[in-house]
Every structure is written in structure tokens, then in C-alpha cells.
Design a protein around this nucleic acid. Structure first.
Lengths: 335, 335
DNA sequence: CTGAAAGCGCTAACAA
DNA sequence: TTGTTAGCGCTTTCAG
């Protein structure tokens, strides 16, 4: 039923090879022939079957993007960056959403990806050593976006710098009692949080502000949990005057918690978040912008380069700067 | 280099046909043989090449999801619903983002989709008659999510009902001077806005509240434009006490505008939006929830059914109910 | 129940 | 410059 290359060849009175050459812009076709073939192609409304082409060339012309929680706005922003560069390329983008760890394992196992895609973009899913090994072994180009592994190509934000900038901002406003609130720092899922924490500690140190464990709290992810943690933090004696939350979602939870306790933000408590997600604008949250879209763009471009240039596989690291975005939830302490 | 079905066949001392049968769970294989083949498959870590399978079966095992503006939160929510059902199916999800009308045309032209995907989900991209014709002609199953066309399968929200519910809510609070603010109602891109408007008019009518053109305004999309329109609406003599904004983004713009004019929401002005996007929660906006995720789920399931059951192509329409979500931006009028 | 062989639609090497 | 042909890796008759 569908028209094939053979139909075109027959009608144009040439061999299939010639049609193929025309299709692929080979210079080795006489102009006259080319024109004839093209006109038949148009007449028949022929479109080459990409599947057949893929089988024949061994290229899938497809890039797999795997990311966790399609829900999260920050992942979406990265995806959007990826999308924007892939749209202009010859590659299709197939989406793999990971909602649980068995799915996660299966993708890292590379079995599911093998021969389905030419390259993979892993968003916010840093592999452990074993997984990285498996991925590298599979020999398919991979770049990590918002993830780090020594033996892989990575595009990631300078989280430690971000931690420093956020903390510095609060200190410059005059805060000394600065709390740090985050997910569990030991989970391998979000090493970025630990880096932000390190930045925080570093600046405290540099500014000769003693670190107090009372001002550091970690727990399950999510806004609700952050609220609970915040209330705990703020209910103690000599509570902090500022909270550095390791994500905007956390920060919003902190604001919720403060509100419940009748503590005014920013008058009585400064709050700084991290990520600059869309919501941050609505709650007028001071935060750290990590150029989410740009990370997607850079990651995709990096992968495209690797695809063009298979030799160059030298674990490029691209570190993205982050910026402070001052809005309305931070100010100098009242006392 | 990669291990093929032939390697497995040779090692298991069977024909490739048998291996294929094992792969596809054909009952026509002796248990003993099956076991032997399976063990070789595992030993060799063989995975069938999906591309070859696709060419051979003529199935791509891929579903194309076409949507505009990967940016917009409401589209993402729908995509998420789609994703969740496709993850559990045998289909891959390939994403086509449409950022301009030439991309749009090319997808509707079906050339680009033909033989790349088994089915298509069109999110928030209602085709015109010609496009629908082309799509139907291509014979590839399509379902419209958040879009309507008589000759296609569609999943869409009951916008007119939503318009009624929103208006009714304001009236029940005691409002009579209710404005309606939206995109240009004549644009074919968003017929849903017009339906919401019709619901609004309908209820006004039923409640014997005369419609005043002074209270209806339309313009370019976006928060900024909504703010401008709102200021215009609220600066006139005898201004409305309530605004029904045709989207949450509009509603947020209205709130901006009111704030600029020193008009307090909800004390002096009630505002109701439409969509219940994430941001609505942060600004505590009363709105209409149209079950975005569910629309994705329903659309994907519908497509899967069509794929299983190619005969049944009878332009199913699935209309999703909408719900009122009362939050903090509406209350009874002060006067 | 199983093996052999004929495609699926295309690309690419080879010969002409 | 062109046509012919041999695959790409799999599924699916068709014999046996």
C-alpha cells in the first residue's frame, strides 16, 4: 500500500540505488536524473521509511532522554532545553520517565536502550560506579545533565558555588544565625544537596561564623516535610534568623511553616531557596538560578558533538555558573 | 559485534525461526527446546533489535505526542498523564514540540509522522478541517487531547460547563457585575475560551442578569496583557465586582492589575481563573480544575484501544467534567 | 514442533 | 554516473 523506493525507481526508470542517492543528496547523480527522480517522488508523495533506513544504516536517529518524575518543574525546564536543540537536529526525542528504582535499574542496565537510540541524555540521574561502568561498556554515547560521574560526560551546575553565594547573601544582609534545610544529605540521589551544604559550611567558616548542628536539618523530600522541619527549626531556643533551603520547594515549605508559627517572612525570618523554578516568582522567593534550560541545551549539544565525532569521548565536564536572584523573602535581620 | 538472533540459533542448535518463536512466546515450541533457547539467550545476553523487529512487523511500537510550547504547565500535566499510561505499555513515546506554525503544518501534513509512529496524540492542537482530512487520510490512529474535531477521536473538557460553574459561583456569592476576560475569542487556536464565554452568557441569561459589553474584554494572550485589560476594565465607571478570567494566567494578570490600582482581592474584587495550574495554588486562586493529568491518561488509553482494535474508528468523544476549586480570591461583594 | 527461506524498505559496495 | 545486489536483524509463511 505505501509507496516504496522501488515504486519510485520503477516509475522514474532508474535503479533503487539512484533514488537512494537522490534521497541522500549524493553528488554522484546527474542533474537531469536527479530532477526526474525528484519529480516522481513528489508525484507519488513518497516518503522514505525511517525504520528501514535505520536498520540499514545501523543508526536510530533517535536520542533517548531519561528523567525521573516528569512532574518536577526543574526537570521539565531541562527537558525543554534539550527539546529545543533536538528539534533542529535530525534526531527524534524519545522520553523515558523513571518513577521507581526498578525502572531506573533497567535503563542503566542499557539493555533497554541498546539499539533503540544513538545516544542518551540522563537528566538528574547520576549513576553509581557500577551503573556508569555498564553504560560505558555499552558504548553508546551518554551525557549526564545535572549529574556527575568521573567517567562520563557531564553538564552540571556549580552547586558548591551556589551554596556559597546563597550563604554569602544572607551574611551580607547581616545574618549570623543561618540554618540549612535539605533532603537527607546522604542519599546518592541528590549529591547536589550535599555540595550546596558544603558551600554553606565553607562560607560560614570563611566568615568565622561557628557552625551549629542545631541549625542544620534534613529529612524526606517535599514541601510538606520541609514545613515540618522548618517548624522544628524555628521552635527551638535562639532560633535562626535566616534559612537557606536547598530547593525552592523546600523554601516554600519553610515559608508555610513560618506562617503557621506566626513568624513573618521576611521581617522576622529571611528565606532563600534554590533552583528558581516558576513558582519562585509567584511567592517572590529569593533564590539561586541554575539556568535549567541552558543545562538542557548544553547537554544536548554536547551529545550531538559526541555523535558527530565518536572518537572524542573524553568525559567532558561542563560546569554551569549559578546566579543569585534577589526577591522579597530576604532582608536584613530586625534585631 | 552485537549478538543477533542468528548467534543464538547457532549456539542453541536450532533455526532462527525457533528462536523468534521463543522470543514471541509462541506456544508452538517444545518446552525442552524453549528452555535450551532461553538459556542461550541469557548466556549471550542477547536482546532483540527493536528496529529490525519494527521493519519486519511493520509496527513501530512508538506513539508520537505532538504538543505546542513544552513550556506551558498545563501541557506538561497532560503529557504526564500520557506518559504514565505509555510507560506501562509496549510503546515508546516520542515527543514533537511545536513552536511555530510551519512545524505545525508539517506534522499535520502527516508526512513526517507516517511510518514513524503507530499512533498520534495531539495535545491542545485542534486541526482545522483540511488538516483533519489529511490526518484521517493517512490512516494512522490519532486522538486529540484538549481539542475537538467532529471527524476525530477527542478527549476534551466540558468548557461550557466550566464557564457556567464559574459564573454560577460568583452569582451565588452575590455578584451581579461580573466581567469576562480572555484571549481573542475569534482565534481558532483556542475555541475553548469561546465555550467558556458561552457558559458565562448562558448563566447570566438564566439568572436574568443583563449582559453588558462593558464587562467583556479580550486581547492578546499572557499575564502582562491580562493585567492591562484588567486595569481598563476596573478603571471604568461602575466597574465590575468580579472577574471571570478565562485562564489562570489571565487571572493572575488580573490580580496584578487590581493590585496596581490599589483594589484589594478578594475584598473589593473577586477573581476566578480557569485551569488550576500549579501556580494557582500559590496565589490561592479560586479556579476551575479540568483534570489535566486525567485528560492525558484518557487520551492515551483511548489511543491504545484504537491500536488494539483498528476497526473501531468511530470518532469517539470523551468529555471530561470540570470542578470548581474554591480558594481565596472570591468572596461575597462588600457593598 | 521445527528449519529453511522469503521478505520488510532501505543503504552501500561493486561492477559496469 | 548508474544499476544490481547483498545485506541490516527480525518475523512469518511453508514444508516437512
Amino acid at each position: 500500500m505505501p509507496v516504496t523506493i522501488r515504486d519510485v525507481a520503477k516509475k522514474a526508470k532508474v535503479g533503487v540505488g539512484t533514488v537512494s542517492r537522490v534521497l541522500n543528496n549524493s553528488p554522484a547523480v546527474r542533474d537531469e536524473t536527479r530532477l526526474r527522480v525528484i519529480s516522481v517522488i513528489e508525484e507519488l508523495e513518497y516518503t522514505p521509511n525511517p525504520i528501514a533506513r535505520r536498520l540499514s544504516t545501523g543508526l536510530t536517529l533517535t536520542i533517548g532522554v531519561v528523567l525521573p518524575y516528569l512532574t518536577m518543574p526543574s526537570f521539565i525546564a531541562r527537558l525543554r532545553g534539550v527539546q529545543s536543540v533536538l528539534t533542529d537536529s535530525k534526531y527524534d526525542l524519545v522520553l523515558y520517565d523513571i518513577e521507581n528504582s526498578s525502572q531506573r535499574d533497567s535503563y542503566f542496565q542499557n539493555f533497554s536502550l541498546k539499539s533503540r537510540v544513538d545516544g542518551v541524555l540522563l537528566i538528574s540521574l547520576p549513576p553509581d560506579d557500577e551503573q556508569a561502568e555498564a553504560l560505558n561498556y555499552s558504548n553508546i554515547p551518554v551525557v549526564l545533565i545535572d549529574g556527575y560521574h568521573p567517567n562520563m560526560c557531564c553538564v552540571y551546575p556549580n552547586d558548591q558555588q551556589g551554596g556559597r553565594i546563597a550563604t554569602q547573601h544572607l551574611i551580607e544582609l547581616g545574618h549570623h544565625k543561618i540554618a540549612f534545610l535539605s533532603d537527607y544529605l546522604s542519599t546518592p540521589f541528590h549529591p547536589s544537596m550535599r555540595l550546596r551544604y558544603q558551600g554553606y559550611r565553607e562560607v560560614l567558616n570563611a566568615e568565622n561564623i561557628p557552625f551549629s548542628p542545631k541549625y542544620q536539618i534534613e529529612g524526606e523530600r517535599g514541601r510538606i516535610n520541609a514545613r515540618t522541619m522548618a517548624k522544628q527549626l524555628l521552635s527551638q531556643d535562639n532560633p535562626p534568623t535566616a534559612v537557606f533551603a536547598a530547593s525552592d520547594t523546600h523554601a516554600i515549605g519553610v515559608i508555610d511553616g513560618a506562617q503557621e508559627l506566626g513568624i513573618k517572612v521576611p521581617d522576622e525570618l529571611s528565606v532563600i531557596g534554590y533552583d528558581n523554578i516558576r513558582d519562585a516568582e509567584y511567592v517572590n522567593l529569593t533564590t539561586i538560578d541554575q539556568h535549567l534550560i541552558q543545562s538542557g541545551i548544553d547537554g544536548a549539544n554536547l551529545l550531538l558533538e559526541m555523535l558527530d565525532n565518536p572518537s572524542k569521548d573524553n568525559h567532558v565536564k561542563k560546569i554551569l555558573d549559578v546566579d543569585l536572584v534577589v526577591r522579597g523573602t530576604t532582608q536584613r535581620p530586625s534585631s
